[in-house]
Simulated assay, not measured.
Amino acid sequence: MLTPPDLPREAIAQCLADAYGLRDIRIEFLPLGADVNSAVFRVDASDGTAYFLKLRRGDFDKPVVTVPAFLHRDKGIEAVMAPLPTTNLQLSVQAHGFDWALYPFFDGSNGFERTLTDPQWTALGTALSAIHEAELPEALSASLPKERYDHHWREGVRRYQRRFINGVKGDGIVERFLAFWEEHAEEIDTIVYRSEQLASILLERPPRLVPCHSDLHAGNVLVGDDDRLSIVDWDTLILAPKERDLMFIGGGVGHVWNQPREEALFYEGYGPGDLDLVALAYYRYERIVKDLLEYCDQMFDAAASTEDREEGLRQMQSQFLPGDVVAIAHRGYDDIT
C-alpha cells in the first residue's frame, strides 16, 4: 500500500500499547509494496528499539505467522523473519478491520535496492535449503495449502481478455493500460497457454512437497551490513515442489537476480539436487499470469489510489522488457522443448 490507511495514529498507538505493552512510541507509515491490502509502519520505542508493524486487510491465515515462528525459533533458521509475541504470547492481533503482526526492524535495504554480496547469496541458498528440508509438525503442515496447479489465475486473465475485446472505458491510466495490453495481446495468449500446458504435464507427476515461501523475489529479501540477511513477508506459504521458490533465482523478477554468477553462488549454499526444468518453466509463466491478473484487478479497483494504479502499470510494462521475466520464461520453455 503506497498511501496510508484511514486509521488514526492514536488508534495504532493504543493497539500496540494494549497488545505489546509499547508506550511512548513514534509511528511512521512506510509506502512499500504493491499489495493494496497491506500497510506497514516503522515503530520507534522510547528505549531506542525499532519495530516493523504490518497490517493486513481481508482473509488472514495463521500459518503466515506460526510457520515463520517455527522455522526461526524451533529450527534455528535465523534468516527467517519471525513475528514477535504479544504480552499474552499470541503472534498476531485483530483490530480495526486489520490483522496486526509486529516484527523486529531490520536495518538495511531489500534486494531490489541493494545487490547481495557473495556471502549473502550463499547464505540465502543455505537458508532456503533448510526451509525446504524442514519437517513441519503435523498441525502446521495440515494448515498449509498444497500445490494444485490451479487454473484460477489463468481463468482470471481470460475473463479480462474477453472483457477487453468487448470494449472498456476508463481514465487516462486505463487507456494506457489497454493500449499496452493490446500491443502484447498475442504474447499474453502464449504465456497463458504455456502455463496451462506445463500444468497439465506436472499434474501427471507425484511431486515431493516442501514448505515454500512462494514469493521469494528480491523485495522480500532484506540485506544489511556485515552480510546480514532476512527473508520476510510469509503471506503466501504453501506446500509445493521446491521449484516454486527456486524459480526466483535467475528468474529476473523486478529486473534483478538474473545473472548466472549469482545463481552459482546461491547453489553453493543450497547444495546439489536435480532441478525439474518443467516445473521451473511452469512457475515462471504462472507467476507472470498471476501478476497480470493482479494488475488488472488493481487497475479496475475503484478503491485503489492513483499512485498504486500507476505503479501497477509500470510494473506490468517492465515485465516485457528485454531480459526481464517474460523473456526468461520463454528461454526456459525453449530449453525443455
Rank of each mutant, 00 (worst) to 15 (best):
I231N: 09
H151P: 09
R26C: 03
I25D: 10
L275K: 15
V210P: 05
E182L: 03
E10Y: 10
T49C: 01
V289H: 02
F112M: 09
G269I: 02
V36D: 05
R176Y: 08
D245M: 10
L202F: 15
V326S: 02
G170D: 12
G254L: 07
V36A: 08
L229F: 12
M316I: 04
P260Q: 00
G252T: 12
L55E: 02
V221G: 03
A185H: 06
G167F: 11
L128A: 14
W100R: 12
Y20R: 04
Q315E: 06
I249P: 01
M299Y: 03
E262M: 02
A95W: 14
P206L: 11
F52K: 01
H213C: 13
L136Y: 11
L229G: 02
N166R: 04
A199E: 10
Q161I: 10
N166D: 07
V278G: 08
V256H: 01
A79Q: 15
H213S: 13
R163I: 14
D118F: 04
C212Y: 11
S200F: 13
P5D: 00
G125V: 02
I231K: 11
H213I: 14
F180I: 14
P322S: 07
E10V: 15
H213E: 12
T117W: 03
A264M: 03
P63Q: 12
L265W: 06
S305E: 00
